[in-house]
Amino acid sequence: MALRTLKLEIFRYNPNVSGDKPQMQEYILEEEPDMTLFMALTRLREEQDPSLIFDFSCRAAVCGSCAMLINGRPKLACKTMTKDLRKKITLMPLPVFKLIGDLSVDTGSWFRAMNKRLEAWVHTNKEFDPDAQEGRMDNDLALRIYESERCIECGCCVAGCGTAILREEFISSAGLNRLARFFIDPRDERSPDQYFEVIGNEYGTFGCVGLMACDDLCPMEIPLQQQLAFVRRKMLVAGLTGSGR
């Protein structure tokens, strides 16, 4: 495909500069072969506007820091090729998360709070014995756990979720997916009742209205629909049979 002249409309606003107002700013850039949005943004910052704020780290869809709204949809900028987009590209920061400036948001605090709320670590009373052999795990189960673990905490699913946008406390599919991982892990000794207490409510599993944006948008292609449905069914059973209130 012939290289084009790209027109990028980028959201500009720095909440730390008093008097700054949110606005869209236009940049013109010559496309290069195999150009990703990461390359495009870096060129802009180096050659046209050093004040442009955005995040990158791994450039290979591993760290999850470069998610932004690309033509309205949450995507990883480093994984998005300009040749797959139309000539005019709009870039905005992810909603829901705290804005740091321009395209950069603080997903870290959100995910940290989510992990704390779910107590996303293995709960066990077993004494750790460094000399003992590691416990064995069935390969299928290990793969199932790994499936949820592939989440890179980019926040695309959260930003695409209508419920998360309306309800700040909604744990979102990233949270429910994380929980599913501990639910099936035999090393975690929490009872279904204990899980139900944390997410068996409107802020957790029953808050989801099934918009499936998360399922369509996750750049790691984690099967979020199945994960959400799995957690929902488990929580139904826990709620009906358990002693939680």
Binding site: L69, G72, R73, M92, P95, G160, G162, I165, L166, V209, G210, L211, M212, A213, D216, L217
Partner: peptide
């Protein structure tokens, strides 16, 4: 969404996202 602002938020969100299942909702 029962507050006007919430309705506007969802409308704007749907317009931006242009995501099929969100529109059907």
């Amino acid at each position: 969404p029962n507050r006007l602002q919430e309705m506007k938020m969802i409308w704007k969100h749907s317009r931006l996202l242009m995501h099929y299942d969100t529109w059907t909702w």
